[in-house]
Design a protein around this nucleic acid. Sequence first.
DNA 1: GATATCGCATGATAAGCGTCATGTCAAACT
DNA 2: AGTTTGACATGACGCTTATCATGCGATATC
Lengths: 199, 199
Amino acid sequence: MTTRAEQKQQSRDKILEAAGRRLRVEGMNGAGVAAVMADAGLTHGAFYSHFSNKDELAREALIHALRDNRERWTGKPQRESWGERLKRLAKRYLTPAHRRDLKESCALAALGSEAARSNDEFKQTYEQELLKTLSIICEGEFDQADAAQAEEALAFMSLIIGSITLSRAVQSKELSDQLLQAGRNAAEKLATDNARKEA
Amino acid sequence: MTTRAEQKQQSRDKILEAAGRRLRVEGMNGAGVAAVMADAGLTHGAFYSHFSNKDELAREALIHALRDNRERWTGKPQRESWGERLKRLAKRYLTPAHRRDLKESCALAALGSEAARSNDEFKQTYEQELLKTLSIICEGEFDQADAAQAEEALAFMSLIIGSITLSRAVQSKELSDQLLQAGRNAAEKLATDNARKEA
DNA sequence: GATATCGCATGATAAGCGTCATGTCAAACT
DNA sequence: AGTTTGACATGACGCTTATCATGCGATATC
């Protein structure tokens, strides 16, 4: 037997999942209340007993989407140098499958330029989620990473997010593939101290 | 005396400029017909004697916006190595002023993740404009650039577009500044053959 | 077992959108 | 000079949107 609170939580999860998909596939404007609720198997009227407005939904959906699949891009930490790590992460991230599967893609990339125009609350959430990812990349706290490593991690994120975004934005398969490969090959060049992460 | 054709061309230019600003500042959905026409000092009804629909406007506005300010980011070619060039370009592109001034910013960055979800016609235009920029970076035809240089130029574009996009998408000024700096410092690392572009 | 609670559906509202039909007036053509 | 053209304004259309008011029915509470 499911209690009422459990029912509500399940509904909320369904809404967040649907919103996450819509956000990534169709962008901030595609994640309309009616469409998301329909995807979740509910009607639009029920929305406001879960979220106070559409903006709040977008923030929560961003968090939810990244919690769900951040590990897919980071994988388990390996015994590897810093440069090897960046190379491994780029190879995982910059794939044709990731380029294609928007609905399960990295939300940071899928929403980049729209986040850049969003309100402060959304940017706050975006930043927070970006920092979580950086912490994992730096294997611990991003804040505590040394300055050089932190800067390289930021450049790495910029590179892979830019690469996958451009690879989706162009028309020809050839150029798109080249963009992915260029990102993969460039990643390890960003690491100056190749010996830091030996473990 | 201005002939009727000149009048129309002027109106068209005003519309394209207004659309370019709206596109970059508010995204594809912000460039609504009514808003753009009002910015151009016209009413919405006149729109359809200039463009057949909103999609066509978006494509034309993208071209117009980049023709207007591509040179601002590329500058005049210098006597410099390939690595020096990438460093110089990144320094020009990744500035607080560029981050702030969305309405005169690089449209390729401002529309990245939305272009990734656009229809084929828009992607075609986006690709074509990206290739024009790459040609300038490679000082001539991008197609004719050797494979290594072409790949590095693609990674470079991914890096700087990713950097400026992320720097706009985060909330804190500190992190935003770090993202710009990380991009600037990473750019020259992408050039493997530092001697190619000596002239 | 009666009552209160609340998640959800139905329906309405007001604002926004893209698009088109019609009218108008000045410029272009014959 | 008379006629045609076409850029633009006005206004309307059908559709979508976010948000809220109301009502129902099952669950929780006493």
